[in-house]
Design a protein around this nucleic acid. Structure first.
Length: 348
DNA sequence: AACACGGGGTA
DNA sequence: TACCCAGTGTT
């Protein structure tokens, strides 16, 4: 039996029942694919449900407020996905009469849609003969055929694309693509692959040669940069706080933060007081200092939260920051560690 | 080609 | 810890 037929049979037996698998509406498939970029199904599932309920069609999403959209996206990470999605929704709604392009080559022109997502949407929604190559595909094919070309090189990517496309020969590209990814996600997993019960074990190079744990090959990772972020959570007796939208090209673009002083190294609160003096010219009271670390893929953040109570926040005291009532913070998106701080703050 | 961009799950 | 995840955009 052909590999593609065998794979699709496996898929029909083992696939998970997921909400985006009950539709071929390009809007919904698009939302699901953006969410699932570098994100596991279990992590993205609730976000998908929230998004399609709040924004049932591309017009609703196009008309959304960006802060509101980022708040829905809060906690999922890679926030450029949300900003690009919003941009593309406006393009589709206002320049394409709300109709998504129906081909790979048109889809890939849209912001946030790269080769993977264009292949996924065009194959799943329009049955175009395109083949997805994601982390699952790299893993399954490298093991099955013993391909040890590093997957994070241009050569490797081309080689796997060619191989995947040759295998996708059954005229059901949407099914084939989802089947291959599902097989990687559920069966041919990164750790402890289920070789004992694998339908392909007899022909699998890695299984026969004991190389399951060394494939796929990936070239060394980038190193992690360390940063020291000192946030002043300033509030007054009237429940007002000081916040700022992050606009720089940096992590957490578009999200909100407290008064920030970033330093080159671990810095005591006393040494940062001069900066704070310039920010608020009335009397102030440092109530509490909390510390935490936060790991990103490429950065390790050493975070201090300095709670500062002042008498009354007024427009004359601050520049570059907004005065916002504590009760309105729930409508804005904050980075994970700041959201956690706010949650703890409310409890105590 | 190399890097930047989050957060959570897994061993 | 270290690695990985239904990747894309920028430099």
């Amino acid at each position: 039996m052909r590999f593609s037929s065998n794979l699709i049979l496996w898929y029909k037996q083992h696939k998970r029942d997921l909400p985006w698998r009950n539709t071929r509406d390009p809007y919904r498939i698009w939302i699901s694919e953006i969410i699932l970029q570098q994100t596991r199904v279990n992590q993205g599932l609730s976000y998908y449900c929230k998004l399609v309920e709040k924004y049932p069609d591309v017009h609703a999403l196009a008309n959304a407020d960006e802060d509101e959209l980022l708040r829905v996206w809060q906690g999922l990470g890679y926030y450029s996905r949300a900003r690009n999605m919003h941009h593309t929704a406006k393009v589709v709604a206002y320049k394409m009469d709300g109709i998504f392009p129906d081909s790979y080559h048109e889809l890939i022109k849209l912001k946030g849609i790269g080769s993977y997502t264009a292949a996924a949407i065009s194959s799943i929604c329009f049955n175009e003969h395109q083949t997805v190559v994601d982390g699952n595909v790299f893993r399954v094919l490298s093991r099955l055929f013993g391909v040890d070309t590093p997957i994070n090189t241009a050569q490797g990517k081309k080689q796997f694309e060619k191989l995947a496309h040759e295998l996708n020969d059954g005229g059901e590209s949407g099914l084939f693509n989802q089947a291959l990814m599902e097989f990687g996600a559920l069966h041919c997993t990164p750790k402890q692959a289920n070789c004992a019960s694998c339908i392909f074990a007899a022909q699998c190079y890695a299984s026969r040669h004991g190389k399951v744990d060394v494939l796929p090959v990936k070239e060394k990772k980038q190193k992690v940069k360390e940063r020291y972020l000192n946030f002043f959570f300033v509030h007054d007796a009237y429940g007002n706080t000081l916040i700022q939208k992050r606009v720089m090209k940096d992590i957490w673009q578009g999200l909100y933060q407290f008064v920030l002083n970033e330093t080159k190294e671990e810095t005591g609160v006393e040494d940062m007081m001069p900066d704070l003096l310039g920010l608020y010219n009335g009397s102030k009271n440092i109530k509490r200092v909390d510390r935490c670390t936060h790991k990103l893929t490429h950065q390790k953040l050493y975070i201090q939260f300095i709670e500062v109570e002042v008498e009354k926040l007024g427009a004359n005291d601050v520049s570059g920051y907004e005065i916002v009532s504590m009760s309105d913070l729930g409508n804005l998106a904050f980075p994970k560690p700041l959201e956690r701080y706010l949650k703890d703050f409310k409890v105590r």
